[in-house]
Amino acid sequence: MERALIQQQLDRVESYLLIDARRVNEQRKRVINLESVGGDAALAREQLSQAEEIQAAHVADVERLRRELMEATE
C-alpha cells in the first residue's frame, strides 16, 4: 500500500482512539454512578464492554498500520 495512504489511515484511526478513550471513560462513570445509587448497571456494563472492544480493535489497527508504514519506508 502507498505510504501516504497508510499514513492517512493511521491518522484517522488514531483520532478514533481519542474518541474511544472518552467513550470508555464516560461509560465507566455511568456504571459507577448507577452502582453507587443501587441502580441496575447491567446495560451500562454491557455498553462499557462494547466500547472497550471497539477501543481494543482500534489499538490493533494502529499497531498494524504502524508496522505497514515501517515496511513501506524500507
Rank of each mutant, 00 (worst) to 15 (best):
A72G: 08
Q47T: 01
G38W: 03
Q55K: 13
R23N: 13
E46I: 03
A41P: 00
R45T: 03
E52S: 03
M1P: 10
R23D: 10
G38A: 06
I54F: 02
R66Y: 04
S36R: 12
L17A: 05
S15F: 09
V59F: 07
I6K: 01
I19E: 14
G39A: 10
N33Y: 08
R22S: 08
M1R: 14
E35L: 09
V59A: 09
R12V: 12
Q27D: 05
A57G: 11
A57V: 08
R45G: 02
D61I: 05
A42W: 03
S49K: 13
V37Y: 07
Y16M: 13
Q8P: 02
A44G: 01
Y16P: 01
V59T: 07
R64Y: 09
A51G: 05
V59M: 10
Q7T: 09
V31I: 07
L17D: 01
R64S: 11
N33R: 14
G39Q: 09
R66C: 05
E14A: 07
M70A: 15
D20Y: 02
R64P: 02
T73H: 10
L69S: 06
R30D: 01
Q27L: 10
V59R: 11
R64M: 13
V62I: 10
R64Q: 12
I6P: 00
A56Y: 04
L69K: 06
M70W: 11
E68K: 10
A44H: 01
R3F: 10
A41D: 02
R12P: 00
D61K: 11
I19R: 10
A51Q: 03
L34G: 00
R64H: 10
I19Q: 11
L5D: 15
D11R: 13
L10C: 06
E35K: 09
N33P: 04
L5W: 14
R30E: 01
E2K: 14
Q47Y: 01
N25E: 15
M1D: 15
N33H: 12
L17F: 05
D11K: 12
D20T: 04
K29G: 03
A57P: 00
V62L: 05
R64I: 06
L34C: 03
M70N: 13
E2M: 13
A60I: 05
N33K: 15
